[in-house]
């Protein structure tokens, strides 16, 4: 069986299970479901934590961890170009080195507050990135959102997407005010 077919079966098999599970992961419980292909185990745990900080679990729905965003990123990176791969390697290293500079220990050994301090620093250059940390934030955030909202946790549980099901008829808009030409004024 080709890798792609095998992977597809794994993903199909895994999806309903992931969808049924309540979010009961302990903070350290982030072992990948399948063998890593690009990220080192240390890098994987860091990516797992950072992505969960970008899209955390809340009372409404699971977060990036339960959506297995880190595993998605690992798979994505295998097929990415050398510069994208290098950008992730150096970006993750930059996160660790900044954390050591500020807090004297590895990111995952920091308190939530310390971790958030680093994340704030990464995110503050989102509009106009100036440092390697800023650039890495854009990179990891973009793939976190892509990975999360293409997962069952993100699309079905969080956004409550209703499509991709056979219907007898397309459900039309049935809000009378959407038809009324003056509705624009009412909405303001």
């Amino acid at each position: 069986m080709k890798r792609r077919e095998a992977l597809e079966l794994v993903m199909i098999a895994a999806a309903p299970i992931a969808a049924q599970q309540p979010h009961r992961h302990a903070p350290g419980d982030s072992a990948p479901a399948t063998a890593l292909r690009f990220l080192s185990p240390e890098e994987f745990r860091l990516v797992d934590r950072l992505t969960e900080m970008i899209i955390p679990a809340d009372a409404h729905s699971p977060g990036a961890r339960e959506a297995r965003v880190a595993a998605y990123i690992d798979e994505l990176l295998v097929d990415s170009g050398a510069s994208e791969q290098a950008g992730w390697r150096s970006g993750l290293a930059a996160v660790e080195s900044e954390t050591r500079r500020l807090h004297g220990k590895a990111f995952l050994n920091c308190s939530s507050m310390q971790q958030d301090q680093i994340m704030k620093e990464m995110a503050e250059g989102e509009e106009s990135p100036r440092t390697s940390l800023h650039r890495f934030f854009i990179r990891i955030k973009s793939q976190t959102l892509s990975g999360y909202y293409t997962s069952s946790a993100g699309l079905l549980k969080d956004l409550q997407y209703k499509g991709i099901v056979p219907l007898a008829a397309f459900p039309p808009c049935n809000h009378p005010d959407h038809e009324r030409p003056a509705a624009k004024k009412l909405a303001q």
């Binding site: 792609r4 597809e8 993903m11 892509s146 997962s151 991709i164």
Partner: peptide
């Protein structure tokens, strides 16, 4: 009728 997570590379992510 496949959701993105049922496809390789999530049916290719947005980007």
């Amino acid at each position: 009728h496949e959701f993105p997570w049922q496809q390789p590379s999530r049916g290719l992510s947005f980007e």
